[in-house]
Amino acid sequence: MARAYQIVSVGFVLLGLFVLWQSIQLRYFSRLGPGPGFFGVWLGGLVAALAVILLLQNTLPRWRPSGPLEVLPPREARAPVAMTVASLPATVLLLPLLGFRLTALGLCLFLLLAVGRQPWWLSGVVALGCSFGIHYVFTALLGVVLPTGAIGI
């Protein structure tokens, strides 16, 4: 448990220092008053300082928390979680190429068949509804523009 929080603390220290470094490059004070770097300097410094406190809390034996903490998914759930997470960058990459309808169709079919292990006919119906059906509702009825792919759909 403590190891996970130590890693998180180090991450927050780095984040705070990064924001501090970025903000230092901006003006701290101008003739009009506080500049664009004013708030960032204080926030970055505070986050880094608090993260150091958190790191100490999780490192010193006096305050170190005990007990197990499962940060990663359990063994039997790793495959579905990994497949779902992996499908996300693929969706972002395919959206401008294939458009919303085809990308959503592929994503739904993948998630329903591979992750959810649903029957193919049910997966097909739901995927069509979630891609072409939702596209129709949002574009034709609600007037929301959704991405169109290189092939025009």
Partner: peptide
């Protein structure tokens, strides 16, 4: 639940894009 999951995901994509 898988159907529900797909619905949430598609609505989230539409919502964040639009």
């Amino acid at each position: 639940y898988p159907i529900l999951m797909v619905l949430i995901l598609i609505f989230s994509i539409v919502g964040s894009y639009s």
